[in-house]
């Protein structure tokens, strides 16, 4: 009797999503309120640490950053030229330019919160009040982190690209070979699937989002190819890659809040 009732409620909720919506809104907000003093004190301790104790080695860090800035300036001047050329060509072929993305910075509050987080996920302190919706892409300057699966007003759950349930449409940056990047679990390689044997790929090549999945905008770096195996018994190459973002030590992330899949007409 109880099992039948539970199954009935589960099926009804599966179709309507009413209970999920209530739990998503109230449960995550409760976590946000209850967790606030913990984040606040952690932030204060961290800022005190960085202000007073972490100054050791600042000069070396400064020198290293100065040389990095010089290197980036050189790269920037070259890219300015290429961007100007791209704009001219775009105008020539009447392409619509891509809208600039709006970023919302968020702090990682927790990694796999609670016993129901059976998937690789993080909890970020930005929710619907900051413009976050389901499937909002989450990135770091190094590469893609994942996408938002559930959200409340002040928190959101992000599915990491290393989870076996995550699938990202990607292509290689140099050879433009397309495939689907699938997670294999924590501390395992990512796998690029459905790459035909004849398609060109190189080890060390960077994989970027292709934009074909309608979730991630085109051109975001995701992973670097580690190994490629071309087996004679399979129609596809076995491609293993490593995520560019350090997903095990995430502290802050960026959420692209204004990306909408372009209309296909």
């Amino acid at each position: 009797m109880t099992i039948a009732l539970l199954l009935g409620v589960y099926t009804w909720n599966w179709r309507t999503g009413v209970l999920d919506a209530i739990a998503e809104r109230s449960g995550m907000d409760m976590v946000s309120w209850a967790g606030w003093p913990l984040h606040w004190s952690r932030e204060k301790v961290q800022s005190a640490w960085s202000r007073y104790f972490y100054l050791v080695g600042l000069r070396q860090e400064n020198d290293r950053l100065r040389s990095k800035v010089t290197e980036l300036f050189l790269q920037l001047s070259r890219l300015h030229e290429e961007a100007a050329e791209a704009s001219r060509l775009r105008a020539l072929y009447s392409f619509h330019p891509v809208e600039p993305w709006d970023f919302e910075g968020g702090r990682v509050v927790s990694y796999r919160f609670g016993p129901h987080a059976a998937v690789e996920s993080i909890l970020v302190d930005k929710g619907t009040t900051s413009g976050v919706t389901t499937n909002t892409p989450v990135i770091t300057p190094e590469g893609v982190v994942g996408r938002v699966l559930r959200k409340s007003t002040r928190l959101s759950q992000v599915l990491l690209i290393t989870d076996p349930n995550s699938k990202v449409a990607v292509m290689s940056r140099e050879n433009r070979t397309q495939g689907i990047l699938v997670g294999q679990g924590p501390s395992a390689f990512l796998q690029m699937q459905y790459v035909p044997l004849n398609d060109v790929l190189e080890e060390g090549e960077v994989l970027i989002t292709s934009g074909m999945d309608g979730v991630f905008p085109k051109g975001l770096p995701v992973a670097r190819i580690q190994t490629i195996v071309r087996s004679s018994v399979s129609l596809f190459q076995t491609v293993q890659a490593v995520a560019l973002a350090d997903l095990r030590n995430l502290e802050e992330v960026l959420m692209i809040t204004n990306y909408a899949q372009p209309d296909v007409e």
Partner: peptide
């Protein structure tokens, strides 16, 4: 009820997993 809401709201499963778990515990 509060525990169910927190666990369900912050988890990835459709509503029911914590009712099953805590319900079994109480039973």
């Amino acid at each position: 009820l509060v525990c169910v809401l927190i666990q369900e709201g912050s988890g990835f499963f459709a509503f029911g997993a914590s009712i099953l778990r805590y319900g079994s515990l109480i039973g």
